[in-house]
Simulated scan of single mutants.
Amino acid sequence: MDYRNYNDNELVSFVEENHENARDILFEKYRPLIVGTANKMHRSCKYNGLEINDLIQEGFLGLSNAITHYNENKDTSFYTFAKTCIERRMISLIISTKRLKHKILNESLSLEGSDDDSSNVGLEIFLGDTNNNPENVLLYNETKIELINNIKSRLTDFEEQVFELKINNFNYREIAAILDRTPKAIDNALQRIKNKAREELSVKN
């Protein structure tokens, strides 16, 4: 069977039926996207000591996840879904690499000095000065992870990528470079995220 004659959705279906050759074709087909995305992101974060091959490897893991979890019944093409999964894996690696570098330099990212990396985020940049409202402070400290997940549910894919990078202390220039967008696009996204974050906080209150 020549799998090259089939579209992405058909190839994904073949993979589900344990046709490994179909997976190989998808990997070959999406290699240029993965390598191209890795090159763009690597130019912006190579100072962190991250190797481009590490990003490429994460990209293929993202593609593998996309193949496993794609639902063709949703209004998203496989290409769009795969691209999002690939970018998310690479961004997660960039974030974890930066965290490791900061740990080595004894620069904690934690707001309260917690050892739990899941709480090492700066939500105050989106929610404003919570210190003026005791109820907000209590909510912020007790339900931080839940709040992050709820905020993410309100965001577009692009906004979620910006959000992940910003709460992990990447600046505008770094985010723009990693996502290959203009600083203005990042600024606009951050303003939308701030509004959605505050809306989520008001719902909780």
Results as ranks from 00 to 15, higher is better:
residue 131 N to R: 13
residue 7 N to H: 14
residue 193 I to M: 01
residue 29 K to H: 13
residue 77 S to I: 00
residue 17 E to G: 05
residue 203 V to R: 15
residue 15 V to W: 06
residue 2 D to L: 07
residue 41 M to Q: 06
residue 147 L to D: 01
residue 157 D to C: 10
residue 179 L to K: 02
residue 47 Y to S: 10
residue 55 L to Y: 02
residue 152 K to P: 05
residue 145 I to K: 09
residue 139 L to Q: 08
residue 21 N to M: 11
residue 144 K to V: 00
residue 195 N to W: 07
residue 3 Y to M: 07
residue 171 N to R: 11
residue 8 D to P: 03
residue 198 R to E: 14
residue 89 R to P: 02
residue 200 E to Q: 15
residue 17 E to F: 10
residue 14 F to K: 14
residue 14 F to G: 04
residue 12 V to K: 04
residue 145 I to Y: 08
residue 163 F to Y: 14
residue 156 T to G: 10
residue 73 N to R: 15
residue 101 K to Q: 06
residue 35 V to A: 04
residue 110 S to L: 03
residue 70 Y to F: 13
residue 191 Q to A: 13
residue 99 R to E: 04
residue 143 T to A: 13
residue 190 L to Y: 03
residue 121 V to N: 08
residue 77 S to N: 03
residue 77 S to M: 07
residue 54 D to G: 08
residue 34 I to L: 07
residue 36 G to Q: 04
residue 168 N to C: 05
residue 45 C to H: 00
residue 147 L to C: 09
residue 194 K to F: 04
residue 88 R to G: 00
residue 201 L to F: 08
residue 70 Y to E: 05
residue 46 K to S: 08
residue 121 V to C: 11
residue 169 N to L: 11
residue 4 R to K: 15
residue 63 L to W: 01
residue 157 D to K: 11
residue 152 K to M: 10
residue 112 E to G: 05
residue 180 D to M: 04
residue 172 Y to R: 09
residue 87 E to D: 10
residue 4 R to Y: 11
residue 180 D to T: 07
residue 92 S to N: 14
residue 65 N to F: 08
residue 79 Y to A: 06
residue 156 T to V: 07
residue 1 M to E: 07
residue 57 Q to E: 12
residue 122 G to P: 10
residue 173 R to Q: 07
residue 138 L to C: 03
residue 19 H to N: 12
residue 195 N to K: 15
residue 77 S to Q: 04
residue 20 E to Y: 11
residue 30 Y to T: 01
residue 107 E to C: 02
residue 40 K to R: 09
residue 168 N to G: 08
residue 144 K to C: 09
residue 149 N to K: 14
residue 162 V to R: 12
residue 63 L to H: 01
residue 148 I to E: 03
residue 102 H to E: 13
residue 102 H to A: 03
residue 198 R to V: 13
residue 181 R to F: 10
